[in-house]
Amino acid sequence: MLTIADTHFSSRLFVGTGKFASADIMRQAIEASGADMVTVALRRVDLDNPEDDIMSHLDRERFHFLPNTSGARTAEEAIRLARLARAATGTPWLKLEVTPDPRTLLPDPIDTLKATEILAQEGFIVLPYINADPILALRLQDAGAAAVMPLGAPIGTNLGIRTALQVEIIIEQARVPVVVDAGIGAPSHAARALEMGADAVLVNTAIAVAGDPVRMARAFRQAVESGRDAFEAGLGAASTVAHASSPETGIIGEDLGFLQEGA
């Protein structure tokens, strides 16, 4: 079972709540996804047009809210949003995002580390959104991050896990859970992440903008379960050359004639 900061999660699929056509479809899609962690953003209330509050559509007893700091361009802005998020949710959970470039929305590694150091000391459970940089992941882990969230591809691109090599290194090295975030555009991408050993994935756009978001949410649920099963079952190694399945053929070994019997 997935555990982050001593909290257990029954699903390895986290879903975002943005970009849905309506609050009702969002609620149904989240139901179908089986997720128990949902991300939310913080924004100023539009006083001329005060829309519904998203929290009223989701049962907070059932869903664990993970507020993000989207929109923050610096560590300082992210910290301010984090404190507001804590006041709003009453919990210290936080998806830390610092994205200074509005075009790519790629995360700033330096300010992300800076903000993580400060927020972890303030008692936040910080899950930083990062580029798939293994050393950064370890530095964040050392700074007190509760998990790391490397991107598969820039957010909203649906390009899949283009950072597979680095994500694999992060998974191999990190002690904290690894949640692949951003870029996951199809259930097969999510399955691939779980097969690689990622602890969870976060999906938003791919579900929200699907022709049938509820059905797509279910497809992601199944893909995540399949991917995790495959990982736990132990995948056979991929190879570009054929390997005979009988032991004595097909493999050439080193000459070990120097070994002496009985020595």
């Binding site: 975002g16 943005g18 953003a41 957010i155």
Partner: peptide, 10 residues
Amino acid sequence: IELIRFVGGG
């Protein structure tokens, strides 16, 4: 005064 609330987000 800033009034802030949750909105959908990923």
